[in-house]
Structure formats: structure tokens, C-alpha cells
Design a protein around this nucleic acid. Structure first.
Lengths: 344, 344
DNA sequence: ATGAAAGCGCTAACAC
DNA sequence: GTGTTAGCGCTTTCAT
């Protein structure tokens, strides 16, 4: 059906081997045959079959990207960044979503390996550190984006969550708040441990010891979870005057709760999120948020991964894994009580 | 490196062919050897190499999904739906983003064909009708989601845009508005022609002839474009009292403009969007919107595509292409002036 | 500088 | 029932 290298060879009156050599610039080919082949190629509209190439080369120029949930704008940004550099460097993405289920994640990883991906980028792994390390040891190029696996021996790019959380809380402190609650995701995820730690740390430095009810680690991270948490907090006998949400999605849910209970933001409740997804600019109350730069993480993660893939190509040696930590920044909008601006 | 079918054959003391037959259940294999093979498989942890399989079968169990912009929540939903059914039916998605550039789109299509995808789903094509038809005639299974190509001879799933727009405008009319502006995307896209037509039609039926300045067809569809359009409209000497935005993203931009100019929604300006992305619920003003059901389109599109792929497998006959039109529904939130609810 | 041949991992006739 | 063989489209020694 499609035109193959054999067709080109025939048309140019040479052997497949020569065509291949010419196409890949891997050996010398005489000027004259070069031209004949080039002519045949464009004449027939030949394009190499990547599958066949992959089988022979053991290289697919395909990268698996596994995210928890495509619907979450944070991942959407990350995917965008990843796709961008993948495309630029000649790779295409195999996308899969886990819905946060570790079991589904293993299935996906297997499927990807069977498809001979050159590497896998995890945006928010749920696998255990050792499983990821095992994967890497097993020869799979891996990179972790956004989620931190302290003991996994693979490349990762993440944002400094402790620092980010402190940025957020300190800002709220500067606005005069003394009663700042925390709403975050499951503590089984390192990122949330760090954000919680940052919150606690900033408060401690200000000599504040928050009541236990002001610390909420939920097991889900969607808007609805934030909504419920918001209601819970607002109905407390002594509700907080401000909330640091460890995720923008959570913050949006909290806004919804305020809306429902007729509490104004930032008037009656100040709010700062984490991620700074673009949508925050047009949310119920324009959201001040720690910039987790999903886009950049997506980009960097893929750069790291592709670099490793292409390096391994030459030298299958174990190179030291890099851990890239992005510095967070505060994207100030109005939900904190400010008018606007950016701060570091 | 990885374990191959040959290893399994060796371990089970049979030939590769037998292993293959057993694995694919394509021929009878004696109970005894079945067991021996099964044992070898699990012993060695064998998993077939899909690339090799693909080369032999000319089937990759991979589907290309091309979207305009992953950052747009409408596409995010669509991707989510697509990924869901792809995974359920044993396919994985090759994702690529065009940024709305037709040239990039062709490049992507070529890359995907080289990778032997079993089919391509376009969420918002920019290619011309005849190019898409040519693709289909050339043996590529194609489905169009969301965007309408009147003359392309391929499967498509779309939402009835004329009807959706009427739903929106009529609702605004019922709220007593007589001055309803339209803000939409490029008229080169059929969807926007339809939404414009629906707007005009509904107004005409109400005996209203809108002034020319109240009809804005922009060439971009991002939030910023909506923002600019909103400012333009609000600064008119006789600004509209309501706006129908042909896309939620555009509506968000308009909200931003209102916010900037201190116009309340729906008090001073009523607003209805199109798409009903989840975020509308927590936007500056909870957005009433025509439900374009991106998620469902993503699902249906992939079902259509996979059905066709698997049908073609058996009978390469040209089957009539299906055009699936989803009925829009109005997702009522507050930006129109209502309190809440749903209407058809 | 070019070609012949083997091999990547799998499937599919066709024999036995 | 099971094995032999050829072939999918490409790359890559190894000769020439």
C-alpha cells in the first residue's frame, strides 16, 4: 500500500541499503546516486515507516506521558509544555491518564513498555519510590515531574514546595492575618507534606500555633473536595480569616463555598492557592497563587528525559540523576487582599 | 534484553508459531502445551512487543488525537473523554497540538501516518474539507470531533451549534434583553458560522435587528481575545445589555473586561457562553452556558473511530460515514440573571 | 561507493 | 495439533 524503501530503491536503481545510508547520512554515497535517490523519494512521496525503523533500531521516538487527570488545568499546562518540547525535538507523546489509581498506573507503564517508548515522564506518580527505581534499573528512561519521590533514583523536576508555601503564608501574614488555615491533599504525597510543612513553619516563625481544626489534609484534590473543606472551615465556631490552599483546584472549591455562604473574598476570607493556573485570573475571585509553573515543569521534564535518552544512546552508562528544583514565585491577584502584582 | 516470543517458545519446548497461536487464540492448541506455554509466559514475565506485532499486522492499536490547544479546557475535556474510551478498548493515544496552525497540522498528520496509527481523530481541524477527504480516501481512518467540515466525507460528531446558539439567545430574550451582542471565533470555522446564524436567527424571530457593531467575529478564541472584545463592546456608546459568547473562553475574557470596567454580571451585563466547561462554575460570575459536552464528543468520536477501524479490519469496504449530532442543552448558572438550573 | 544478507519480534500460510 | 518458512520495512555488518 504505502511506498516503502524497496520501492525507492527500485525506482532509483540501487539497493535498499544504499537508500538507507543516504537517508540517514550514515555512510558516503556518491553525488550522483544521492541525486537519483532524492529524486525517487520526492517522486514517490516516500516517508520511512517509523514502526519498522523502531523494530530495527529499538528506538521509537515516542515518549510516554502519564498524568493523574487531564481535566486538572495544572496537568493541562504541564502536558502543553511537554508536548511543545517533544515536538520540537522530534518525539511524539503517548498520553495516558491514571485517575490517580496506582494500579492503573502499572497497567499503563506496561502498555507503554510494550510499545517500546524511549522513556516515560510521570506527572505525579503514585508508584512507590522503589518501583520507579526498579523501572529505571530495568533500563527505562524515567523522569518525574511535579511530584517528588524522595528516594527514587531518577531525574526529577519539581518546585520548592516548602518555600512556595512559606511565600503564600508570609504574604497572608503581612496582610495582618493571624488565623490562617491549611487545606491540602493526601500526606502520602511528598508535595503536600512539604506544603504543610511550609505553612506550619511560616506560622511558627510568626509565633503562631494553629488549632488542629485549621489543618485539613484531604484525600482528593478536586474542586469538590475543596468545596467541602471550605464549608467545613467556614462553619467552624472560630473560622479562619484566611486559607492557604495547597492547590488551585482546592482553592476554587473554597471560593465556591464562600460564594454559597455569602462570604466575600478577600473581605471576609483571604485565600491563596498553589499552581497559578491561568484560569485563576478569571475565577470567582481572581486568585493569588504560588506559581508552580506546570508549563515549565512539563518543558524541563521532557528536556531532561530526551537528553537522557539520547545520551544513553551513545553511552549506556549510568549517569547521575539530576534533581531540578524550580523556585516558586507568588502570582498576586486579588483573593489575598492585594490589588495586583508579582512578588518573589 | 527484553524477553521475546522465542524465549517463551524455547522455555516451553515448542515453536514460536505455537506460542503465537496460543497467545492469540487463533488456532487450536492442545491442553497440555497450553499449560506449558502459560507457565513459561508467567515464568519469564513475557509481554508481546507491540511494535513487532504492529509491523506484521499493520495494526498499531494506537490512535492519533490532534487538538488545537491543550490549554483550552474544552479540549481538555474532549481529550479526557477520548482517552477514556481508547483505554477501555485497548488503544492508546498519540497526542499532538497544532496551536491552530494548518501547516503544523499537516506535519502532525504525516508524523502520525509514519507511526502507523490505526486512525486519527481531529478535535477541530483546520485542514480543508478536501484534504480530509483525501486522507480518508487514502485509507486513513478519520473522525472529526467538534468541528464541522460540511463537505468532508468522514465520520464526525458535533453539537448542533445553530440550535445551541438559539437556546442561549432565547434564554437571554426571556430575561427581557433586547440588545444582545455576539462574540465568536473566525467565520472560516463552520461552527462559528452556525453559532452566528443561531444568534441572528433567534433575534430575527423576536423581531430584532442587531446593529453591526454588536456582531464580533474574532480571529482568535482565547481568553485575551474575549477580553479585548468585551472592552470594545462595553465602550460602545450604546453597549449591549447582554452578550452571547460562542465559546466559554471568550466569555471568561468578557468577564474580565466587565471586572475591569466595574460592570456587574448579570446586573449590568448578562452573559451566556458555549461549551459549559467545568470551570464555568467557579468563574468570576458563574457562567450560564450551552453545554457543548466536550467529554461526550471525545468519547463518541473515539467510539466511532475504533468501530470503523475494527470494521475495516474485516471488510475494507467503504461504509457510509456517520454524522453524529449531539443535542445541546443549556447549563444555567448565574451570569444570565437566573439563580440556577438546567433547561433544554 | 554499493550490494547481499541477516536480523529486529511477531504473524500467517502451508505442510506434516 | 504443531513446526517450517516467509515476510512486515528498516538498518547494519560484511563483502566486494
Amino acid at each position: 500500500m504505502a511506498v516503502t524503501i524497496t520501492d525507492v530503491a527500485k525506482a532509483a536503481g540501487v539497493s535498499k541499503a544504499t537508500v538507507s545510508k543516504f537517508l540517514n547520512g550514515t555512510h558516503y554515497v556518491s553525488q550522483e546516486t544521492k541525486e537519483r535517490i532524492a529524486a525517487a523519494v520526492s517522486e514517490l512521496g516516500y516517508a520511512p515507516n517509523r514502526v519498522a525503523q523502531g523494530l530495527s533500531l529499538k528506538r521509537s521516538h515516542t515518549i510516554g506521558l502519564v498524568v493523574a487527570n487531564i481535566g486538572n488545568p495544572f496537568y493541562a499546562e504541564l502536558i502543553r509544555g511537554a508536548e511543545e518540547v517533544a515536538a520540537a525535538r522530534g518525539y511524539t507523546l503517548l498520553l495516558a491518564s491514571t485517575d490517580g489509581e496506582p494500579r492503573r498506573e502499572s497497567t499503563i507503564v506496561n502498555a507503554m513498555r510494550q510499545r517500546q517508548v524511549d522513556g516515560i515522564a510521570f506527572a505525579s506518580v503514585r508508584l512507590a519510590d522503589r518501583e520507579v527505581t526498579a523501572l529505571a534499573k530495568d533500563g527505562v528512561n524515567v523522569v518525574l515531574a511535579s511530584r517528588h519521590l524522595p528516594d527514587a533514583e531518577v531525574d526529577m523536576v519539581l518546585v520548592d514546595s516548602v518555600k512556595g508555601a512559606k511565600l503564600a503564608v508570609n504574604h497572608l501574614l503581612q496582610h495582618g492575618h493571624r488565623s490562617i488555615a491549611y487545606v491540602g491533599g493526601p500526606l502520602s504525597i511528598a508535595q503536600f507534606q512539604d506544603r504543610l510543612k511550609g505553612w506550619k513553619g511560616a506560622l511558627a516563625e510568626a509565633g503562631i500555633e494553629p488549632p488542629a481544626m485549621h489543618e485539613l489534609s484531604l484525600d482528593r484534590m478536586d474542586v469538590e473536595a475543596g468545596h467541602q473543606a471550605g464549608l467545613r472551615l467556614l462553619r467552624l465556631e472560630n473560622p479562619p480569616t484566611a486559607i492557604f490552599a495547597a492547590t488551585d483546584n482546592l482553592a476554587f472549591g473554597i471560593m465556591q463555598a464562600c460564594d454559597e455562604m455569602n462570604r466575600t473574598i478577600p473581605g471576609e476570607l483571604a485565600l491563596v492557592g498553589f499552581d497559578a493556573v491561568p484560569f485563576g485570573a478569571v475565577s470567582l475571585s481572581p486568585l493569588t497563587s504560588v506559581d508552580g509553573s506546570g508549563l515549565i515543569m512539563g518543558q524541563r521534564a521532557l528536556q531532561l528525559l530526551i537528553d537522557r535518552i539520547e545520551r544513553d544512546q551513545r553511552t549506556p552508562a549510568e549517569s547521575r540523576q539530576v534533581r531540578m528544583v524550580l523556585q516558586p514565585t507568588l502570582c498576586i491577584r486579588r483573593s489575598c487582599g492585594c490589588r495586583s502584582g508579582t512578588e518573589n
